[in-house]
Computed example of a mutant assay.
Amino acid sequence: MAERKSERLMNLIFLLLSTRQFLTKEQVRAAIDDYRASSDDAFNRMFERDKGELRDLGIPLEIGSFDPLHEDMQGYRIPRDAAELPELELTAEESAVIGLAAQVWEHAGLAGQSSDALIKLKAAGVAIDTSAVPLAQPRITAAEPAFDAVWEAARARQPIRFPYGRTGEEPVERHLQPWGVLSWRGRWYVGGHDVDRGEPRLFRVSRIRGDVRTAGAAGAYTVPEGTSVRDLAASFTVNDPVGEAVLHVRRDRALPLRRHALSVTPIDGDLDEVVVGYRSTWELASTAASFAPHVVVVSPPEARALAVEVLQSAVEANA
């Protein structure tokens, strides 16, 4: 219930922050699932509580008329200038945490309703400033059905078991005490204590080939003090890039690629040439393809060809 409430409040913030006009209660209700599924009385109570939560969080809620001809008809919005944070100076560790949080919200299981709510308002004729919600930028990603299950298990400190293996291989059942989930070089991984091997291991979520099942009670183990799943991921990978790739990237798009760019050179008013280091041609191609149509691989040619294959596969799968 607490998670559902948090998601609803986040959706409400996105809606009221993204609009330049006042939204009626009916527009807000139509855009957010929890509100829409409630009775009139339940919605009114829930909305009043949520408005109080926003005030308690220090988020200013502005009430005004959305119709100059009917000033008694009230609407709601969050003023951008009042809600924006002052300039922040973050340490490298703090920036890493915020970057990871942003990557988590890009996952379809967590960001879908927020994006849907914006789409519904836009369809209703409400002016939306999507620059206020950069996390809502869509990406083409392969489905990872096991993501939510391993995420919840890591949060609950609950042992799990699952069939695991590469495509074309016979999966083997693995037993894991998950410590955390992270995005590493464009892939989702779950790290923790491998019960079968008796040592820390890292598992790619997309290679989980079936249902994730519980193998113990919640809170059955503790994560060793000082553990970092990111450090665990680094210990299993080679850090040195094997080459450099040239990409054409639309302005203000593909922010994760830009964060790790070796150089960014404007081409025209809409495109930048972005040079990135890469360790795997397949990883480079699949990551670039996930940002289509805003990213085009220029070189190396083998990565460009692989990116085309990925997009063609996505089209066939959706067909």
Rank of each mutant, 00 (worst) to 15 (best):
G165I: 05
L182N: 06
R80P: 00
V310R: 08
A220W: 02
A37I: 14
S183H: 14
G52Q: 10
R49H: 08
A261R: 05
V264I: 15
A220K: 00
V310S: 08
D268Q: 04
F236H: 13
P68K: 00
A233Q: 08
Q113C: 03
I267Y: 05
A305P: 00
V195E: 13
W282E: 15
D81T: 15
V205E: 09
V195A: 10
L90I: 08
R304S: 12
I13S: 04
V275L: 02
A153Y: 09
A108S: 13
E302A: 13
T237M: 10
S299L: 05
A245R: 06
Q21H: 04
I78G: 04
Q137I: 07
E283C: 01
K51R: 11
I63T: 15
G75K: 02
E94T: 06
A124E: 06
S95M: 09
E3F: 11
S39H: 07
A37K: 15
D196I: 01
V212Y: 05
F291Y: 15
L61R: 00
R4E: 13
G192R: 09
Y164N: 05
V242L: 11
I140K: 12
V205Q: 09
V249W: 01
A101D: 15
Q113F: 07
N44H: 03
I32A: 04
G125H: 08
R209G: 10
A92I: 09
F236M: 12
S206R: 13
R45D: 06
L135Q: 11
D270F: 04
P293D: 09
E94F: 08
G226T: 09
H193E: 14
Q137F: 02
E283G: 15
P145F: 01
S299P: 06
V133R: 08
L23C: 09
W188A: 11
V315A: 14
E3Q: 13
Y76P: 01
L311P: 02
L306G: 04
